[in-house]
Design a protein around this nucleic acid. Sequence first.
DNA 1: CAACTTTTGGCAACCGCTTGCCGCACCCTT
DNA 2: AAGGGTGCGGCAAGCGGTTGCCAAAAGTTG
Lengths: 341, 341
Amino acid sequence: MAETNARGSAPTIRDVAALAGVATSTVSRALSNPDRVNRATRERIEKVAAELNYVPSSQARGLSSGRTNAIALLVPDVTNPFYFDIIRGTQNQLKAAGYTQLLVDTEESAEMEADTLQKMQRTADGFILAASRLTDTQILEAAASQAIVTINRSSANAPTVVIDTPGAVVQALEHLASLGHTRICYVGGPASSWSNAKRWKTFEEESRDRGLTTSRVGPFTPKTTSGAAAADAAARTGATACIVFNDLLAIGMLQRLRERGIRVPEDMSIVGCDDIFGADFCNPPLTTMASPIEQAGRVAVSMLLAQLDPLNAGSSRRLAVMPTHLTVRGSTGPAPVQHPE
Amino acid sequence: MAETNARGSAPTIRDVAALAGVATSTVSRALSNPDRVNRATRERIEKVAAELNYVPSSQARGLSSGRTNAIALLVPDVTNPFYFDIIRGTQNQLKAAGYTQLLVDTEESAEMEADTLQKMQRTADGFILAASRLTDTQILEAAASQAIVTINRSSANAPTVVIDTPGAVVQALEHLASLGHTRICYVGGPASSWSNAKRWKTFEEESRDRGLTTSRVGPFTPKTTSGAAAADAAARTGATACIVFNDLLAIGMLQRLRERGIRVPEDMSIVGCDDIFGADFCNPPLTTMASPIEQAGRVAVSMLLAQLDPLNAGSSRRLAVMPTHLTVRGSTGPAPVQHPE
DNA sequence: CAACTTTTGGCAACCGCTTGCCGCACCCTT
DNA sequence: AAGGGTGCGGCAAGCGGTTGCCAAAAGTTG
């Protein structure tokens, strides 16, 4: 395999040019602007390039063009299955568009997020912030100097794709109410989470409208390991049903409740959120507000790419709302009969 | 925020130099080789750079140095939780070392894998191939021109980290034998998977040594959705226990078996492999050969970085074997009593 | 104080590729 | 046959850094 030139390093455009007997500019054009050169010349160049196993350097190309053809995805926690689905969605869509995905874990830290945004501004053409922990101001600043799309973090300052969990919360409440539950507890996620605030707000308002008694516990870290504490706290409130910030936490609660002999759904109904991997096969299977997470990732990429495209800059969508629906499984059931003490 | 220079674009080293009253070379040195310049000068430059919000272009830097400070991780399927754990491991370790992770999904295709390796050779400083589908020859070729580490794909041609699932298979067999099982079925994964071949080989040999009756079904795509077919096939063999290629498949089987009224573990014991997210909370919880997957990712990064380091090139480890152990949960139990027909 | 060493900063040549501009052929018109 | 296009390829100036080499300045030494 002819993978190195006379100097022993990877072949460059110059090597191709020399061997094909043309100028480097011609090679460049033949490869990236085929119509600009004569067909015969182009074919000769392509042949030589193939022989030499020539691969253009994206770095060098980026230097002149100013683009990197990479976009960065910032997630608070690569560990969380919710983000897996986003990663999957963006990955697919980006690859289809010829972009490289740079994956960064910001470890739930706003500082790290801001830092990455700053450090990578020249490394990526754009950023997708999943569940950003940044303040509105920070997002504004960031959006001023680079292309940004946020997921589940609405802000007037950058295009956003949000998953309509508030809508799902309403469905969940109706579901629970129809099962006879009147005392419902909201099990909260991270304090800095925008979605968490949204869900709580909707929960509270809609519960009030329906004359339901609410309580709230949390905040909890959205991991299964926090489920025990969450379950204990929720059980104390006397509620017969819980709407939980996300599936991870809900699954953790399921385990703890079983250990404590609190039966789900006989004694306590649980509704999760996101419908992550595992929600369908945990025990009991989890009733959850299903989000088209992967699709959200896809849409985010489309919006970002549209933003990057000089042709329709500005004209692109600023907001996409992904519909959700309640997926009812085994973790919800009729409210227990009240025993007078 | 002073984020643009007079020309309206991002500040460059020249802008800094001009404002600090020095040559660009001095700025460059002050920033990347601090001892080379006078302290006072350096501090002045740093101050100006901070004011200007100057961020060096990794592209430009890479052009001269020939390094990109990025490494690519190729996985067959981002969807698979097994790879999530790898992604997590590499991500952490790479970030710690100041590298960027490029994530690529090769869609279980050897061709796509080879293609990516080729196209990205100038984009990444090195590659980590998780469960590579490439042939030995292809790996050899690739390793000749770039730094490569494979995970779960042993090959003399590149440093490798393998997870010792054969060792775990032995443990699993002993576990099942001690529970009285004599007829055991191996539920196979993808035909092109190296680990699958390894596991089957060990399974067969060790079973023979122990006088166990074996059977084999498959290959199956390692997804929960293939679990139904796998469960049906395994049930037909008359085996009372299955060792399954991986947890994904095993979890799928669990669901199907329940639907069919085949109780786990009373009628059939199931052992999975990998201990992925979900293995502990499925129903019943899965006995599985636990792999330190995330750690495997970490180690792979270390090995790759060692390879990249000119100081100890060649002296670095070529093989790391990650120990595994059997995690016994609810999906395995005593063999059913034989009913004479 | 002269000779010598060390420190420090500048010059300029790249790294690999893109692209505006120029000019040579060649083909059409009228 | 002369003027005007058009197609095609080359020249050379960048893109934003890095780095070998050099020289001036500063510090050492006997």
